[in-house]
């Protein structure tokens, strides 16, 4: 087990190192950062000083090692545009993105799981077929297009909800959050629903498949034979059976939801990390891009590592096969 553990962690570290090189090289290759940072009217002398100050005159590999050294000390450099440390910038935007992603996950489960259970409980009913059609739409409609329709319908036509922005926030433990006030709710509900659609489709399918399987199992038959009420059968036995796969996928999907937030945040002008990265790409704000990408790689590698190790703990066969 220890060998398996060490091997996995080692692999994860290699992945992070390789990706950091790729990201650094890739981001370096686009545009000329000097043009972005320095006033075109500046004299050659000022340009030279700034180029030396930021280290752009040194060889690429040297810049990389300086960069890695700084990163290991938690210093991702300064944003060219905002002139503040990149890490501070990203962390200041994180609460908005996390709140949006959590809201989306919440909406997806509150709507998706009951619908999926119903579709599995009555697979032949018309309502169940309508639910499955809905889940296909959730999968295949592009997020940005649905977002657009939501803005058009609820903000432009009906004037029920604001078309974008985050609205008023209240601090809880020093973190600004929207869901505390009703006004904040009106701002978060549309983007959160937009972001929820993909997971909603996914959860409907998962819950339906699990319910179908559970309904034909012996323990459900015995529970019914015992004279348990249908609500008890579904609420107790079926729900327990589908909980594990749903929780697993949920954990895995959280990273993707954060990534998809890029699109939703752009449409709804939500001031999160996704909006920040799109804006940074547009103006070639190199340090922000590098830091964001490396944090994302780190996030996904950690999620994968944890899932991998958990599977290893739960199933000795995986341990044996993968170690071979």
């Amino acid at each position: 087990m220890l060998g398996f553990f060490i091997q996995r962690v080692f692999q994860a570290v290699i992945v992070v190192v390789v990706m950091s090189i790729l990201v650094f090289l890739g981001v370096y290759a686009i545009g000329n950062p000097i043009d972005v940072m320095i006033d075109p009217a500046a004299t050659q002398q000022i340009r030279d000083t700034l180029i030396r100050q930021y280290g752009f005159d040194r060889p690429l590999w040297e810049q990389y090692f300086v960069f890695v050294g700084n990163v290991l000390q938690g210093d991702f450099g300064q944003s060219f545009v905002y002139r503040v440390p990149v890490l501070d910038l990203i962390f200041s935007r994180l609460p908005a993105t996390f709140e949006l992603a959590l809201g989306a996950m919440l909406i997806a489960s509150v709507i998706g799981i009951p619908l999926g259970i119903w579709a599995g409980y009555r697979p032949r009913a018309f309502s169940s077929k309508a639910i499955m059609a809905l889940s296909i739409l959730g999968f295949s409609l592009p997020t940005f297009w649905v977002g657009l329709l939501l803005v058009m319908t609820f903000a432009v036509q009906l004037h029920w909800l604001p078309s974008g922005g985050r609205g008023p926030t209240s601090d809880i433990l020093g973190i600004p959050l929207s869901f505390v006030t009703p006004a904040g709710w009106s701002y978060i509900i549309l983007p959160a629903f937009n972001l929820a659609l993909f997971n909603l489709g996914l959860l409907i399918r998962l819950a339906r498949a699990g319910t179908l399987e559970a309904m034909s199992s012996d323990y459900v038959r015995f529970a019914r034979a015992q004279g348990l009420k249908e609500s008890k059968v579904v609420g107790l036995h079926v729900l327990k059976n589908i909980a594990i796969p749903i929780v697993t996928v949920f954990g895995l999907e959280f990273g993707s939801t954060l990534a998809f937030a890029v699109v939703t945040e752009t449409i709804f002008n939500w001031p999160g990390v996704g909006k920040l990265i799109i804006d940074s790409i547009m103006v070639l704000d190199r340090p922000v891009m590098v830091a964001y990408l490396i944090l994302v790689v780190l996030l996904f590698v950690i999620i994968n590592l944890v899932v991998d190790l958990l599977y290893g703990v739960l199933d000795p066969r995986i341990r044996a096969r993968r170690a071979a």
């Binding site: 981001v27 990273g255 699109v263 790409i281 996904f300 999620i303 994968n304």
Partner: peptide, 13 residues
């Protein structure tokens, strides 16, 4: 394990 949109976004950038 990474969403395609993220990879595509990074690469076009």
């Amino acid at each position: 394990s990474m969403p395609a949109i993220l990879l595509a976004l990074v690469l076009t950038a």
